[in-house]
Design a protein around this nucleic acid. Sequence first.
DNA 1: AAAAAAC
Length: 503
Amino acid sequence: MKFTDLNLDSDLLKAIRRQGFEEATPIQAETIPLALNGDDVIGQAQTGTGKTAAFGLSILQRIDQDNPNVQALIISPTRELAIQTQEELYRLGQDKKAKVQVVYGGADIGRQIRALKAHPQIVVGTPGRLQDHINRRTLKLAHVQTLVLDEADEMLDMGFLDDIEKIIKQLPEQRQTLLFSATIPAAIRKIADQFMHDPKMVRIKAKELTADLLDQYFVQTKEFEKFNVMTRLFDVQNPELTIVFGRTKRRVDELSKGLRARGYNAEGIHGDLSQQKRMTVLKSFKAGKLDILVATDVAARGLDISGVTHVYNYDVPQDPDSYVHRVGRTARAGHKGTSITFVTPNEMGYLRTIEKLTRLRMQPLKAPSAKEAFQGQLSSATSSIHELIDGENLTKYEAQGEQLLDDYTPLQLAAALLKTISKDDAAEVPVKITPERPLPRRNGGHHNGGHHRNGGGYRGNRRYDHNRHGGHSRSRGRENRYDRKKRFSHKKGNQNYSVRSHG
DNA sequence: AAAAAAC
């Protein structure tokens, strides 16, 4: 179905066209007519199916841009998702001149208050800060016509039920409610019974998340050698846009620090970082200035980052849903993706459970040997140097003869090669990652025993003192494209050592 | 058991 068949305003069609969309996704094709008709809708769909535009377009169509009141409210589980939703609505609503404001915690509330005074017609936010604005009476919801509960199952899991109920009580009874959720457990049904009127179900078949586009692997490895195995895999695969998921915030800190110590271009993101930091990290990852994003599950759901090639699960995810969401960050929009999950021998049961419940299969992958990793590094360095001398400027260099020697002496080229492979290089920095407490037993449903408090001696917290080696960055950031002299490190290529050859 | 979310 094409967007032009959906009875949308020319303003919206213009925005859609400008973004290069033509075909509506299944969730859009089914949801938009219902929502335009004013029906309540329960949409069962994973992220990445285009559900933001599904509710966004119908909201924008029904908005009265001459009415200064807040007419639509969208509640999101995480700040990043709220920001992303606001951005998408802004893009779709530009020609319509509808104002969209996002509010979330960890950011200056004064600025948000001023922005809310400027009369946005659509407000996107996270539960806590929305509640805060409501209490301060800086957000008035008396004229809201449409409420969207995005990632509703997620919000319930996070314990937002109370907040959401409180917010809903501020809304007019006469309104439209759109609820989106990947799963529809009993608790969601209850919310629907309580707060929705004769909702229409739109169900998108659990997107065959896989098969052709996503290559899923697992690597069996002992806890203490995981980190080394991971960097070897990086050396073999040359990650460009890679997300590494860790189980805890502390782990994410240690992993990103360790990766930087070994010269990888990595940054961490989790809920204890300032919102400022979270935003800059995500932004630079999206812009390709960062090769590796190390994240807790804060980044597992809903985030749409184009071009992610690899997802690593440094630890087996706690629950199957988490696995599905994490690996769903790659293989998006028709692109291929690879996921690699590390599993210790006694966690194999978890892996099998995930496979069973998600009906997904992971292929075993052998950890690369040190030699293979070394060859991977060598190959990267070689292709870097090749790029220096015969990349886009080959013809120029050929025409100018000795110009090459002026720019890069053979000594410099040799040094570049050596730097990448040298024993003194950052690649050799030993990194110690504090072992995590093992996962609780799956059966029985109750966490018996094992209730040590955090820091009860278990996390002995011996920090490794990394030698830092300044200067040598493995960044292949796109912004450095023309800064050739600095770019002595690897570049992609290296197909020979692709992970698929082990499959 | 952990993560997310309001100061």
